[in-house]
């Protein structure tokens, strides 16, 4: 069976609908982190650390740290929210809440449950990114930030695609971690390396191997692509590279996720 087609099936969207309903019931607490996190980051790093840093050079042009940071936060939110939801959230639903088992005794198959989780992680991450945009707009109204605001809605589909591919990484670890006590491993092995080698929070140092490695990092291209678009109003090759790498990641990981999760859930290879 084609592992990608269930992404478009009504059953996968029914799972997405379930997660959305649960989330919306707790919207007032669920919305706090995506509002507060960028706010704190922009205040602590953009304003606070930014004053110490002064200006930095990006693409040969000087800029203040706040402006460098804003698109990076947007990219990092897509990455982190999606990964967190598809790892912690999915693992808890699969292992502790047994909601996967309940769903799998209905008209839903594992492919639908897995795609439902991936779509939900991507949807939530995109919604969080939209909230970050509102926070950025708030800084814009306070004359702290000047971006090409019209591009913000346009980048949302790319953020969704990136988040979807990051969720495939999260689901991979959901499938293989032995227990919840091992949750720190994926953060140590994936989040930190991808996050640090991505130019989201600071420009990459001019180290050849690091620069070469970053070319394979979709988060790096997402951050750089958003930066080009939101700071200069220019669509750079980073956007295409980010989209391409995310599609590759999805194409490679989804069949692996399905196979590993089938083994984990059904005990059946």
């Amino acid at each position: 069976m084609n592992p990608y087609l269930p992404a478009f099936a009504w059953q996968s969207h029914a799972v997405l609908g379930r997660h959305l309903r649960v989330h919306l019931r707790n919207w007032y607490t669920a919305t706090l982190p995506p509002v507060c996190e960028p706010l704190i980051m922009l205040l602590a790093f953009g304003v606070g650390l930014g004053r110490q840093i002064g200006t930095l050079t990006w693409n040969g042009a000087p800029m203040d740290y706040m402006h460098y940071l804003a698109p990076g936060i947007l990219a990092y939110t897509a990455f982190m929210s999606s990964f967190f939801q598809s790892l912690f959230g999915a693992y808890i639903r699969m292992h502790f809440q047994k909601s996967w088992e309940g769903q799998l005794t209905t008209q839903l198959r594992l492919e639908h449950v897995v795609w439902g989780e991936a779509l939900w992680a991507a949807t939530l991450a995109t919604a969080y990114a939209a909230i970050v945009c509102l926070v950025l707009a708030g800084f814009g109204l306070a004359d702290q930030l000047a971006l090409h605001w019209a591009w913000l809605p346009v980048v949302m589909p790319l953020i969704f695609l990136a988040a979807l591919s990051f969720s495939a990484i999260g689901l991979y670890f959901t499938a293989i971690i032995p227990s919840i006590d091992h949750m720190s491993l994926p953060f140590f092995l994936v989040i930190m390396p991808i996050g640090f080698a991505s130019s989201t929070y600071f420009p990459l140092p001019d180290v050849p191997w690091l620069t070469a490695t970053a070319q394979l990092n979709p988060l790096h291209h997402l951050a750089e692509g958003l930066r080009g678009l939101l700071l200069n109003g220019q669509a750079t090759w980073h956007l295409a590279a980010s989209g391409g790498l995310c599609l590759l990641l999805l194409a490679a990981l989804i069949p692996v996720d399905m196979r590993l999760l089938r083994k984990r859930v059904f005990g059946d290879g």
């Binding site: 379930r18 909601s99 309940g102 769903q103 008209q107």
Partner: peptide, 25 residues
Amino acid sequence: CTQDDTFDSEFTVRGNLVQTGRYYR
């Protein structure tokens, strides 16, 4: 009806029935 209870703990009794029903469109 599985051996173990596999309720959706996020929903009420009625909510569980509604949510399960939705999986059949």
